[in-house]
Design a protein around this nucleic acid. Structure first.
Length: 443
RNA sequence: UCCAGCGUGGCUCAAUGGCAGAGCAUCCGGCUGUUAACCGGACGGUUGGGGGUUCGAGUCCCUCCGCUGGAGCCA
C-alpha cells in the first residue's frame, strides 16, 4: 500500500507518549501505531503506542467530525496513525493520561490481521513471529531493561578508566576447546572459527593498556536446549594486568552491584511493569557471599546430593548452592582438572586453581566465569600438553609470556543471563532481540 | 547426542476406537468509559506427512518431520 503524504510531517507539535503528562491541556500530535481498539458504538478507545510508551486515545461521536470518527472506526490492529488530540488527566484511563482525539491521519491500515492478538499464544508461534512479537508491551519493557543493563556495563568500565578493546569474531586459533566451535571457510587460508571468547586477545591487550574490556557476540556450537542457553550470546569480558585472584573477585562484585542498582534506578518502571519483585534486586550490593569448591561439595553432601570432591557441580547442584543466599554467590578454587588449561594453580594447593564462578540467586545459575591466568611460559606449555592440545596453535598466546609477563586476571559475564536474572525471565530467549537457539535461526 | 512431552479452523485448546466442537481473532448488527470490553449472528477443518491394525482411527501401532522441556557442557 502506498504511503500518503501529509502536512503533519512538519506543522504539528509532535510529542513522545512518555512525555505526554508534561503537556496536559495542550493539543499535541502522537505518531505511532494502534495496538488495540475497543468501541462502544458512539465512543472509541484507541490504545496507541509509539515506542516510548502506550496511551489511550478517545474518539467521541459527539465531539469529532464524521470523517475523523470514520477513520477511527476503520483502524485495525497495528495500523500506523498520526493522531492529534488534547492531553487530559483522566483517572479512568490506564496511565492516568489520555488523548482526546481531534484529528486522525491514517498512514497505513494493514490488509492482513495482526497475528499476535491475545495473551495465550504458544512459544513456538511467538518465536516464529518474533519480528512482530517485539511490538508487545512486555517485550518492549524487556528490551529497554537490556539496554539499561548494557549501558551500565559500559559505564562501569569507562568510569574506571578501562579501555574498550573489540576482539575479533573470526579467529584462526581455537579458543578454549575444539568441538563446540562454528567452523567456516576463510578464502585460501582454510578454516576459521567464530569466537567463543575474546579472552586470549584481551590478555594481549591488557599487556598493552593495563585495564581492558570487551562487549560483543560469541558463538558456541553446543547442542544445548535449556532455558539458560543461546547459540549466539553477548558476553562482556574484562582483563587486568597485575590483578590477582582477589582483585578479580572484587571487580566482579562491584560490576554486578553497579549494574543491578543502575538498572533499578533507570528501568525500575519497566521491571515493575513486567512483574519483577524489585525488593530482591535492592539487596544486591557488594560484597557477595563466598565459598570454596571444597565447601560447596560439603554443603551439597549435607543436603543429600551424591557428590565427591572432583565431581562437576551440575545444574541441580548449582541451584541448591545458590538458593542458600539472596545475593549472587562466588564459588572459588575448583579442582584444576575441571577447568581450562590457562588457569593459575594455587601455589599452596596445586590441585586447585585461582578461579571463580558467580551464581545468580533465584535459580538463574552461572553469570560469570573467571580466573587468574598462568603467566609463566613453561607452566602454560606444560598445561597445554596435559590437556592434549597442540602447543603450536598457541604460538602468539605463549609469546605474550616472553616479553615482560605479569600476573593478570579476568572474567566473562553472559549478558543475556544477567538480563534474564534482573528482569526475572523464565527463559533466556526473551533476553535478546532475536535469539539463536538450537534449530531456530528464523526470523 | 540422549531422555520425556506435544502436533486438531488464523490463534489457544476440547473430543471412552463411533456425527470433529468451544473460546479468541475476522466479518455483520447493538452499545458514550472500555481495560484480554460485553451482547447477538455469520464465516472458518485433507486432525503435521507416509504406512499399518480395525466394520470404523483425531484417538491404537510403526516411521519420518517440526516444536517444547530437561540432561551433559557452558556464560
Amino acid at each position: 500500500m502506498k504511503l500518503k503524504s501529509s502536512p503533519w510531517r512538519c506543522s504539528m507539535k509532535v510529542v513522545d507518549i512518555s512525555d505526554l503528562r508534561s503537556h496536559t491541556g495542550e493539543e499535541v500530535t502522537v505518531r505511532g501505531w494502534l495496538r488495540r481498539k475497543r468501541s462502544s458504538g458512539k465512543i472509541q478507545f484507541l490504545f496507541l503506542r509509539d515506542g516510548s510508551g502506550f496511551v489511550q486515545a478517545i474518539a467521541e461521536r459527539s465531539s469529532v467530525s464524521d470523517g475523523v470518527f470514520q477513520n477511527a472506526n476503520n483502524l485495525k490492529m497495528e495500523s500506523s496513525v498520526v493522531v492529534k488530540g488534547v492531553v487530559k488527566a483522566e483517572e479512568r484511563a490506564p496511565g492516568g493520561v489520555e488523548l482526546l482525539v481531534t484529528d486522525i491521519e491514517v498512514v497505513q491500515i494493514p490488509e492482513k490481521d495482526f497475528p499476535i492478538n491475545k495473551p495465550d499464544h504458544s512459544i513456538d508461534f511467538l518465536m516464529d513471529n518474533r519480528h512482530l512479537w517485539l511490538r508487545t508491551q512486555r517485550q518492549t519493557h524487556i528490551l529497554k531493561i537490556r539496554h539499561e543493563i548494557i549501558k551500565a556495563v559500559r559505564e562501569f568500565y569507562n568510569d574506571r578508566d578501562f579501555v574498550l578493546v573489540d576482539t575479533p569474531i573470526f579467529t584462526g586459533s581455537i579458543g578454549e576447546s575444539a568441538g563446540n566451535t562454528f567452523e567456516i571457510d576463510y578464502f585460501d587460508y582454510g578454516k576459521a572459527y567464530l569466537a567463543q571468547t575474546g579472552q586470549l586477545y584481551l590478555e594481549a591487550a591488557a599487556m598493552a593498556l593495563g585495564k581492558v574490556y570487551n562487549l560483543g557476540p560469541t558463538f558456541r556450537a553446543e547442542k544445548s536446549k535449556t532455558r539458560r542457553h543461546l547459540i549466539e550470546f553477548w558476553m562482556n569480558e574484562a582483563e587486568v594486568a597485575y590483578y590477582k585472584h582477589e582483585d578479580n573477585i572484587k571487580l566482579q562484585e562491584d560490576l554486578v552491584s553497579y549494574v543491578v542498582q543502575k538498572t533499578l534506578e533507570r528501568a525500575g518502571d519497566n521491571l515493575l511493569a513486567i512483574g519483577r519483585d524489585i525488593g530482591k534486586l535492592k539487596k544486591i550490593e557488594a560484597p557477595f557471599p563466598r565459598m570454596t569448591y571444597d565447601e560447596a561439595v560439603r554443603l551439597l553432601q549435607k543436603k543429600g546430593f551424591t557428590i565427591a570432591w572432583g565431581d562437576d557441580i551440575g545444574a541441580d547442584e548449582e541451584t541448591a548452592v545458590a538458593s542458600e543466599f539472596d545475593k549472587p554467590v562466588v564459588v572459588e578454587k575448583y579442582p584444576k582438572m575441571m577447568k581450562a588449561f590457562y588457569m593459575q594453580p594455587d601455589p599452596e594447593r596445586p590441585e586447585v586453581v585461582f578461579c571463580d564462578d558467580m551464581l545468580a540467586p533465584e535459580g538463574y545459575g552461572e553469570i560469570i566465569g573467571a580466573s587468574e591466568r598462568i603467566h609463566e611460559r613453561e607452566l602454560l606449555i606444560e598445561r597445554i600438553k596435559e590437556y592434549g592440545l597442540d602447543v603450536s596453535s598457541y604460538d602468539w598466546y605463549l609469546e605474550l609470556r616472553d616479553y615482560g609477563t605479569v600476573p593478570h586476571s579476568g572474567f566473562g559475564m553472559g549478558i543475556e543471563r544477567v538480563v534474564a536474572w534482573i528482569a526475572g525471565l523464565e527463559h533466556i530467549r526473551e533476553a535478546i532481540p532475536f535469539a539463536r537457539t538450537l534449530y531456530r535461526i528464523h526470523p
